[in-house]
Design a protein around this nucleic acid. Structure first.
Ligand SMILES: [Mn+2]
Ligand SMILES: [Mn+2]
Ligand SMILES: [Mn+2]
Ligand SMILES: [Mn+2]
Lengths: 224, 224
DNA sequence: CTTAGGTTTAAGGTGTACCTTATAATAACT
DNA sequence: AGTTATTATAAGGTACACCTTAAACCTAAG
């Protein structure tokens, strides 16, 4: 039977986080990483050392970590699995979109391409996850993400919702309850001068959304 | 983010194995268990001790291990997940039946009922896995398995294949290549007096199968 | 009733993945 | 240049899940 647990989980989560925290080729400070993962900086450093031995990351002391070619490839593979499973959970099983992220975070470590690719085929090779984030290709190419954040719109502008990020259950649920879902068309009515809260109209309703929350919504402007 | 790996895998594999090795209420010797799992008896004993603290098993020294109510419930839940994933992999993704067992053995530890039950519904609440083994119900009831093994048939008897067990890739592949698949109708032609090899006819062909292998095939006799 | 063989415990290790509490080293800022 | 805050390392732990070798123990068979 051979049990061989292997535990790919933790290193894969580090890889994914490093990828997602990185902007351009700037190294990610270990503190940022440890913070995101909810792990002590000392433990994160330990893990980074182990991963460096496996040539998954490069650590420049006092600067941060960056992915090697191998690491990047693996990170994108995990991200692909994650988003494909999310699609499966919503499209095939009908789970609510605010719930699928956590489940997918567990499934993403459990299978290889022999399952992922047939799954992608069955789902019709989707380009994005249910929250609008692009799915890396099987070859490890990440489609470039373009788009404005909602808080970057100016008053009077109309736009369509493309992505919600991060994929936090509370955020997703809250936005959805106000009608802010993928594909929704909205108009920015006004910006509160003091706290930066945004009043938007979506559907027939008007909603007020804090600047913080507004920055979670990625849109593309339209002229109507 | 909270990484919390938890590692349900190993204990769950022990539970599943104890369930499958148990006949009736007889305790399973740890040597049998350690053997099945490919783990040293000392390590298995260690694990059993940990599981006993969690009230998953009861260990009677020099006799063996048996599942507690809690342990049994969990074992059947794992088995249900395993067999549902197998069905998913064959029915939805079209993976070959000799390959799905190993993949399912990884997936079975990754999700809870919030996924399993919608999955079961999507699959049409199947009663058996692709290899014919019964799927425990969501309530934790195991449908009783009845049926003769192929090596228990006498010459001249006709029967239909219900289950192949164990779900070993080589065994499955070999049998399938001879036309011995679920639902196949066969007739036992003769039994070799010396080594007990069975000559059977299946489809239009005649095949010789060792006694060992014949015992992996569960059938129900028919009168034709 | 003895004893051989299967079973358990003891002892000491490995590697992973986390923790805390220091202390050292460095980068960036005044 | 000196101070401060961040970052890294050192040291010592925990828990899991495996390993080996050796001694102790029980059971069941002879
Ligand atoms: Mn994950
Ligand atoms: Mn998503
Ligand atoms: Mn398994
Ligand atoms: Mn099966």
């Amino acid at each position: 039977m051979s049990i061989r647990t292997g535990s790919r989980e933790s290193p894969e989560m580090y890889l994914k986080s490093i990828y997602q925290l990185g902007v351009g080729d700037a190294p990610v400070p270990i503190s940022t990483l440890s913070n995101r993962l909810g792990i002590s900086p000392v433990s994160a450093t330990e893990m980074i050392h182990r991963m460096e031995k496996r040539r998954l990351v490069k650590h420049i002391p006092y600067k941060g970590v960056s992915l090697t070619k191998r690491g990047l490839k693996q990170a994108l593979a995990v991200l692909r699995r994650h988003r494909l499973w999310e699609r499966f959970l919503t499209d095939r099983l009908g789970l609510p979109w605010e719930q699928v992220h956590d489940v997918a975070c567990s499934l993403e470590h459990s299978v290889g391409p022999e399952v992922t690719e047939p799954l992608a085929a069955d789902l019709g090779e989707p380009a994005t996850c249910p929250h609008g984030n692009p799915i890396p290709t099987a070859e490890g190419e990440m489609p470039s993400e373009r788009g404005l954040r909602l808080h970057e719109l100016s008053a009077g502008q109309r736009a369509v919702v493309d992505v919600i990020r991060p994929e936090n259950a509370e955020i997703l649920e809250h936005l959805a309850s106000h009608g802010v879902t993928l594909g929704a068309e909205l108009e920015l009515i006004e910006i509160e001068p003091l706290d930066g809260a945004r009043t938007i109209s979506v559907g027939s309703k008007q909603v007020v959304i804090g600047k913080e929350l507004a920055s979670c919504v990625v849109v593309h402007p339209i002229h109507a």
